[in-house]
Design a binder for these strands. Sequence first.
DNA 1: CTGTTAGCGCCTTCAT
DNA 2: ATGAAGGCGCTAACAG
Lengths: 379, 379
Amino acid sequence: MAMSKHPSPVTIYAVAEAAGVSIATVSRVLSRPDVVAAHTRARVRSAIADLDYVPAGSARSLAVRQNEAHGLVLPELSGPYYSELLTGYEAAAADAGQSVVLMLAFGKTDLVRAVRNLAAKVDGIAVLGSIGLPGPVLAGLVRSTPVMVIAGDPADGIEAVNAENRSSTMALTRHLMDHGRSKLLFLGDPQSAPDVRDRYAGFVDAYAADARVGGRRSRASDRAPAPIAMAFVESEGARIADEIATGRLDADALVCANDEVALAVIHRLKQLGLRVPADVAVVGFDDLMAARYVEPGLTTVRQPVRELGSLIATRLHDRIGGAPARSAPTVLPTELVIRQSCGCPAPDIRQPADAASAPLADPNRRTRPITVQHEGVTP
Amino acid sequence: MAMSKHPSPVTIYAVAEAAGVSIATVSRVLSRPDVVAAHTRARVRSAIADLDYVPAGSARSLAVRQNEAHGLVLPELSGPYYSELLTGYEAAAADAGQSVVLMLAFGKTDLVRAVRNLAAKVDGIAVLGSIGLPGPVLAGLVRSTPVMVIAGDPADGIEAVNAENRSSTMALTRHLMDHGRSKLLFLGDPQSAPDVRDRYAGFVDAYAADARVGGRRSRASDRAPAPIAMAFVESEGARIADEIATGRLDADALVCANDEVALAVIHRLKQLGLRVPADVAVVGFDDLMAARYVEPGLTTVRQPVRELGSLIATRLHDRIGGAPARSAPTVLPTELVIRQSCGCPAPDIRQPADAASAPLADPNRRTRPITVQHEGVTP
DNA sequence: CTGTTAGCGCCTTCAT
DNA sequence: ATGAAGGCGCTAACAG
């Protein structure tokens, strides 16, 4: 029946009148119900219910000088990585009574304006490191609101929370070397994002360490080869695979900046008739769900993405509460996940499930990987 | 240097003073720059820049009586479906100058309170149909803010936008019958969500139509079999597959409520040594990315998820602007995607890409599906 | 073109 | 235990 064009203007005054009390009392039953007499409280509550009163958030925010909301800027939402991150973030924010206002940078024509706009409606912002936000812009934001960066570099007033990238990648790379591989290639553009940069650094570290130990492996070169810059898109992965198949690129092992790249490359390599890992070993980073389903299982690094998200939200909340920005980045520990794409043999603990005796199959069983904790700086 | 505990209280008064004008003028350069003299405008702007002034959103919202934000309640974020939806929603909202505050229902202990809280900070809300929000609660919300439901049923004041479910599933089911399959099973719980319910209805429709035409296929029964209720989780899919393998469930074709179920079932079926589609055909719904990568390619129904998201946001915006709620649901057209899991032969247009001549491989090439538009009620 | 002045709806001392 | 009143920061007439 009711078809008011504008949402009903049920204000605190309306309920106050309906309950025969002052707005102060209504406000009290909303915030500190215990300080108001039982019967008045009841009257007020029934008035609230009758009118379906919903206090205006903006008015409250203005009065308490808190938006009670956390901003989050992500590049996009494709793939499970960002979704996981967002899930963890939302959960932690909600636990702290904060709502989250999300913004997807990809495709925004005027990112800067959009971010400023966001900043106006929240108490703090978390931004993904790989988003190309001009430094000065961030610096400006910092003056009005706490800023956190995920998988990026800390800066003055900007706190960073990352997953361990460098030593994990180094370990992964050395693992490949231990398999006797000598023509390694790093797939990814270190310039594209801080985490890719760090992973490449780990790749380089592995070479340095290897040289130090003494060239016990084939020494095509002591220095790490330059990274093969590429976008994180399927077609790029396929392109690289093509170049390897044709011999244009010479490699017997590929260290990919992330699983998506690894998966795309493997897919294409197999399609072109090359064997993985026999002809070329491939490792990734992230441990996406798909990593365990491909043939061969992808050796990679698992990072605690959801925890990363919740930690970011929690730290942001702390900072909104007055905690100073940590200048050193917080880095979460990762875990090496050794499957078969690196050349390791399959555990082969497969066991045809009997419907009666083993109703629930653990998908991990099939290729239970060997995992190696890789420390970080826990908060 | 600056380490103010609380975000700097740079208000419109501060910039006004710094620029030597009144707050009204500052407000004007922010909203209608053209009505203020060029030089004063310049002075104000430099003051804004100097102070890194960010107008308080809450104050603005209170004054204009608009939060300029759209709420969105999703159950969770696993899988590509919700991410896509959210992506479309965010894009459309942003285009309309609205920010989106997201809430994930899964795991919330007090969903009702959370939703009310959300409602206080936005101008309108979109909720996924499968979220178990008590009818009365929604009805109450409707009194204070526009409500839209995605993939759900419309109600008084609640407008719905869906993808076509029923006739798409019917077509899919008949397609299976045309392949000569007679022991079909519907996997999914119609009670769990409106869209699953509609899909099952389509499944039933197919049986009804088949009976009408005259039993030209094997007539195990004229009536559609009861649905196999199950949760949309991998383990459940595996369980069903086990039961089929052991003969506990007799079927030669499976109509799954969605792709995730189909994928899980196929995976397990193959693992148990059954052939798909030879022994049992399987079809899904959604056309997830993975649908085209599995062996055999999954025959399914593609629904325009992203468009669904943006349409919901757009309609919500319209309603906030005063448009009345449509009582009939808007349904978006879907498309049958015929691959091989239903029993159809592979197009086999594979063509080993030559690195030089065909640098970019279209992943669709490999199993280009036959698609059939399935109409809906376009907005 | 610019300044003055009411509110917007709620919270919060300060009285009573 | 409750009411009165000032203010949060900004917008929008209304004057000038």
